[in-house]
Structures are given as structure tokens and as C-alpha cells.
Design a protein around this nucleic acid. Structure first.
Lengths: 346, 346
DNA sequence: CTGTTAGCGCATTCAT
DNA sequence: ATGAATGCGCTAACAG
């Protein structure tokens, strides 16, 4: 309600100097009061505290972190905020409440600058000062020798030197294919993710392993690149579904890719799941909003986030902890999969 | 691959001083090269650039922002990361790509410290230094006289002095009730949100207006407090649905509240929508994952975010722009609503 | 108990 | 074209 009285007229921000001046003490004294350090007279503490409240002063995170090493803030570094990372964020957020740490999520991928090193850059910019530790989401490079503790979620290069947490991509892919096989499908296509990413490679490996385990052979014509992207997948699916001897089922490397397949199927007049079964991967919240709702391999996204927080907090306490954690995936059967058509169209 | 050569052995972080030392120039020279200011010999530029690349140096966001006013970073201040704010984040993120600004989302609500002033605190801690402008999500207090441009999304106190953006809560509530009225419902209950929040008050007002407009009277026994929370709503719904002359439809103030109602209905063995119709508000992604999928009033969450970015960028350019923007809601009819039962049970 | 003196990493005058 | 000096807001040693 009250306007800050005695604040410097020019600057909008109230600094520790303003508080000191109004309270009639020196700057370090104010600092001591704020940081609850002893060696200050009770009367002074009260007076300074009053001025702090009156002026609405808050320490600048920036200035403090420049000086002292600990900030009580954990950084989450993501390339951008999309469904995958925001789900992780939710898990991280709920796991952080009550720990005394605050969260600072940084999207450091300046578009256009499609340099793969966004995570190094972000980490460099924030570490040493602003944040005590970091959780990096889907880094494409190794973050070894970081000045602060780092946990990588779903690293694109596989578990390297640093602490990582991911879900079992290969086993998840096996679950997907086994589900399709159990439904009687024999011609099962796979839309791969980005070939440079470990997760995509593992999902493809799981696909191949499960197909072989079912006594089927992988038709290389049915393995295409979807690039983890909806549009690309839609285009590739069109080719796949209009060609000769089309598959009765598609296992897409992620949900976006699966959505692309669903779109193309609808455009081609193919019924899902009557003519074509589709399985995705990730189970982002949007997966259940598709028509029909998507059967997909669920990554425990929020748990991935909360476990990462636990690992990081342990590291911040000096505890090394286990370096790699791998969580199980779950097949979420919705309505995009069904029995293989009795007569496979040719 | 290569380890930083020449970096200070002790510290993990590469500073501008390290670069200067290795390149054999002074710190200001390095600063000039990095910030593309002229007055440096071409040969020196090249040499410094090489050392920068070799050492993997990045300017510290902290140190830079302490010194210069502009940082090129926009802050998103949220109480915590939950579905509502993460959806906004997605819209903000996509609207920010290509603008040259980076995003820094800060969850400043330290639990336990349930002080309503989290937004002031966060703003104070980050502004003046770290961020050039801020988007504050669901602030509970007015943020007037901030040192930096601020846009508030869905402010809980209604449009005040500063720039705000929200959706038309009252009209949305009217849509919900009109939908139920059109289905033949005459006993329509309302689970209110938190009474101290403007959005909740507006939704209730819309409910009352629409009920009256339909020629019905509001039965005060059917207006209860759900507090925007699932558990509380579930409990209140139990009382409402087991009492005499129960309603055939419930308009819940938000999706969480509606989920609570669905849960209770299932526990009571009431069919939705055969025995009871339920409408929510917000349309968070999770709304379509309920059983049955929830009919709800959709706020354009991602658009809310992107419009906020546009407003903020305009303000950062010095353009005052329109102070208040209100977006329309859309009724999303799914499967939790249906015709009123022919015979209303009593 | 309090104030003075140093920096933290960087950008900006102003000299040279 | 380059470097020495200064200050951003704050905290950690010390000195008084």
C-alpha cells in the first residue's frame, strides 16, 4: 500500500545502500541483519528490519550470487519449453517443494542459432554464480567437468561420465511391438527418431529385437525416418501407407511422430485401429487428446523429474550417489491399436 | 574433447580474466571483442576469438547484468510449475523464439512460506539486473511501480494499474451454463473457486447471470466452495450429490475441481453423463484424460502466453500498448455432459 | 558491536 | 588500438 519512502528517486530498485542510508547504519550491518549473522545489537536489528519491510527491500539474487557461492537455487536447463520438458518441470517442481531450494528454468536455445552446444552455453552462463546445481534436459553433448553438480535427464549421447537419468527406451520399444504382435500384426512399420540421438537408436534396437523375437523378419522398407517430428512423419507415413503391401501397424518413435501418422491415416480414409494400429512413445498429456486416443509407451515423466531432483540434492550434499538411474516404461493401451485386419490389404 | 588449456586450475569456471591472460591482452579488450564493439585490431580480434573458443568461455549472465542494464532475458514468474503455468510457458516459449530474447522461468514460492507476496519477492530478486522484463502468472497483488516492464497473466485482483491479460471468465461461465440449460438441465450446481480470486468471482457471476437468463432461480444450496482444489471439491460434491433433491449437473470453477466431482460421482455409482453432467473450466491437457473426457470451458492458454510476450516486447520497445487484453473462451464439449435425466431423482 | 576495506566478473569511461 | 581505473550490489574478512 505505502510507497517506498526514502528510496532513491531515480532508480526503481531498492538496494541495500538505500536501506543502510534510511536506517542510518552501514551497508555491511544491513547485510548481517538480512543474513541473520550475529554480531548486531538487537535494537539495530529491529530498526533495520523495519526499514527493510518499509522499503520492500529484497536482496538481488544476482549480486548475492556474484559474491557468495551458495544461492539456494537449482537450475533447469532446457532447449525450449515444449510438452516433454514442461512435464519434467512439473515433476521437478513438486519434488523441490519443501527442500528450501528455488527453481530457475532457463530456455537457452536461441532459435536460428541451432548450435548443438546450447547446454554448454547455458550452463556456462548460469553456473559458478546463479545456481548451485543444474538439471539438464536432453543434452546433446557431454557435460563433464562442470563447475557445479549436474544431472542429465534423457541425455542424447547415452550415460557418460556424469550423472544421468532416463527411462528404458529399448525395453519400452519391445513392449510396444509385443503389444502389436499379440494383436496379430505381422507387418509392423517403425518410424525412427533422429538418428543422432541415443534414445532413437535404442527404440529402433528394441523394435528390431522384438520383431525378431516374434519370429518375424524386419522388412527394411517398413523402417523409415520420422525425425521425432509430426510433419515429417506425416509425409513419410503417406508414402508408407499408399505403397504396395502396406503395414497394418506403425510403431512411431515418439508421440509427435505418431500424431503425424494419425493425421495421414485420417487423410487417406484409413480407420484407426480398424485398418491401421498406431503406437507412440513418451505419453505426453497431449497423447490422450488425439482421435482416437493414442496407445503409447509411457515414460514416467514426472518421476524422471523428481528423481533427478533427488539425485541432484544428494550431490549438493556432497554425496556422490548412484551415477545412473533408469526407470521402467509402461505401455498405455488406448484406442489407436486393435486386432490386425483379417485380410491384410495388398 | 579438449580440456580447457590455460584455465585456472582451482576454479572450474572460465572467466574473462582467464581469456585475457591466455590471449595476452587486457580484460577490456576481451570485453570489446565479445560485445562486438569497435576499437580493436583485426588481428587481436582473431586471437581473442580463438582463445574464447578454445577455453569455451561464455559471459556470466550474472556479472554482465550487474553492470549493464540490458540482458536480453525475459523472466516468467510463477508460484510453481503446474499444468496451468506450464501450458502458458509453452505459449510464451514459442512466441519468444526468433525475438532474440531468452527465457528464464522462476518458481519463487518457497513452500511453507505461504506469504502472498511471492511475486513481489521474485520480481525484486530478479529485476533491475537479471531480466529486462517480466511476465507474472496469477499474481495475487498489484505489481505497480516495478522497475521493469511487467505483464500480468490472469491477475487475481483484476485489471489494475499495470498491463494485464486474461480470458473472459464471466462469459466462459455463461457458456458452460447455457450448454447445460440447452441439454435440459434445470438444477445446476456450482462449485466455486477461491473466494479471494477475481477469476472465481467472475465465474460465479457468470453462472448466476446465465441461470437467471434461462428463467431459472439459483438455489443457494447448490452453490458450494470447491476452492479450485480436487480433494475439497470431491468432499463437497459428496455432500451435494447424496443430499435430497440433488442437481443433475455441476459447473465446477476449474478442471481440478471438476475432476474431484467426477471422482465422487464414480464412488457413488452415478453415471456421467447419464445421471450427472459435469463441466469444468481451463481445459488443461489433463482434462481430456479423465473418464469420461471432461467437457470444459477452454481458456486459450498458449495464446494467453504468446499475447503476453507480444505485449511485453512492445513495452520493452518503449511502446505503451494497450493495457488490458481479454481473450474469449471456448466451450469444449466432450463426454461428461449429456441430456438431463428424464426423471430427476429426488 | 560496528564500520572500513576488499573483492566477485564484467562493461564502461578515460587515459595512454 | 589498448589498458588502468571505476563501479554495479552484495558479502567476507578484518579493524576499530
Amino acid at each position: 500500500m505505502e510507497t517506498a519512502v526514502g528510496a532513491r528517486p531515480g532508480s526503481g530498485r531498492v538496494t541495500i545502500a538505500d536501506v543502510a542510508r534510511v536506517a542510518g547504519v552501514s551497508i555491511p550491518t544491513v547485510s548481517k541483519v538480512i543474513n541473520q549473522r550475529d554480531g548486531v545489537a538487537p535494537a539495530t536489528i529491529v530498526r533495520v528490519q523495519e526499514v527493510v519491510d518499509q522499503l520492500g527491500y529484497e536482496t538481488s539474487l544476482v549480486a548475492r550470487s556474484l559474491r557468495s557461492s551458495r544461492t539456494g537455487v537449482v537450475g533447469i536447463l532446457v532447449p525450449e519449453f515444449e510438452p516433454f520438458s514442461t512435464e519434467l518441470l512439473r515433476g521437478i517442481s513438486s519434488a523441490t517443494t519443501g527442500t528450501g531450494y528455488e527453481l530457475l528454468a532457463y530456455a537457452g536455445l536461441v532459435t536460428g542459432t541451432d548450435q548443438p552446444g546450447w547446454e554448454r552455453r547455458s550452463l556456462s552462463r548460469l553456473s559458478g554464480t546463479l545456481i548451485d546445481g543444474a538439471i539438464v534436459v536432453t543434452p546433446t553433448t557431454a557435460l563433464s567437468s562442470s563447475p557445479i553438480p549436474v544431472v542429465a535427464i534423457d541425455p542424447h549421447t547415452g550415460p557418460e561420465g556424469h550423472a544421468t537419468i532416463d527411462s528404458d527406451n529399448e525395453a519400452g520399444a519391445v513392449q510396444a511391438v509385443e503389444h502389436l504382435v499379440a494383436l496379430g500384426h505381422t507387418r509392423i512399420a517403425h518410424l525412427r527418431g533422429r538418428p543422432d540421438l541415443a534414445s532413437a537408436q535404442l527404440r529402433e534396437a528394441g523394435y528390431r529385437r522384438a520383431v525378431a523375437a516374434a519370429g518375424l523378419t524386419v522388412d527394411e522398407a517398413l523402417v523409415r525416418d520420422g525425425g521425432y517430428q509430426e510433419d515429417q512423419s506425416a509425409a513419410v507415413a503417406r508414402d508408407l501407407l499408399t505403397g504396395p503391401d502396406r503395414p497394418s501397424a506403425v510403431f512411431a518413435a515418439n508421440d509427435s511422430s505418431a500424431v503425424g501418422v494419425l493425421r495421414t491415416a485420417a487423410e487417406l480414409g484409413l480407420g484407426v485401429p480398424s485398418d491401421l494400429s498406431v503406437v507412440g512413445f513418451d505419453d505426453v498429456p497431449q497423447a490422450s487428446m488425439t482421435t482416437p486416443p493414442l496407445t503409447t509407451v509411457a515414460q514416467p515423466l514426472t518421476e524422471l523429474g523428481s528423481r533427478a531432483v533427488e539425485m541432484l540434492l544428494r550431490m549438493l550434499r556432497g554425496d556422490p550417489g548412484s551415477a545412473h538411474v533408469r526407470l521402467a516404461t509402461t505401455l498405455r493401451v488406448r484406442q489407436s491399436t486393435g486386432p490386425a485386419p483379417a485380410v491384410v490389404p495388398r
